[in-house]
């Protein structure tokens, strides 16, 4: 499968990366080169093979339902959460107005 300019533009839009026309033109052959290369995987016979789900045999551990048991994973720390915000507003994160 190879991608054209329109497809690359669509991917860029899905990925929310603004690209200029010139960048777009440059990306097309680059992505096609990489895609052509990874497509060799298609030749591997994977009949009856399950996709990998865990690299090391291990299963999901669940945690107890306790509020703020660890300050690193708990709430109640608005200052820390907002410390790096580009536009903090009265305890909120400010973003350009969204019209729904």
């Amino acid at each position: 499968m190879s991608v054209d300019t329109a497809t690359v533009a669509k991917i860029a839009s899905l990925a929310r990366i603004k690209v200029s026309e010139a960048e777009l033109e440059g990306m097309v052959p680059e992505l096609n080169g990489i895609l052509a290369w990874v497509e060799q995987l298609g030749e591997v016979d994977v009949t009856g093979v399950e996709p990998m789900t865990a690299v090391i045999p291990n299963q999901l551990r669940l945690r107890a339902d306790v509020i703020d048991a660890d300050p690193l994973t708990g709430g109640g720390r608005r200052d820390a959460v907002l410390a790096n915000a580009p536009a903090p507003e009265h305890g909120f994160f400010g973003v350009p107005k969204v019209i729904e």
Binding site: M1, V38, L41, G42, V44, V46, V49, E50, P51, M52, T53, V55
Partner: peptide, 15 residues
């Protein structure tokens, strides 16, 4: 499926 699922299957084979 063609890319990601296939890659995870090949990954199983590599492991």
């Amino acid at each position: 499926d063609a890319y990601y699922t296939q890659a995870q299957k090949v990954r199983t084979l590599i492991a």
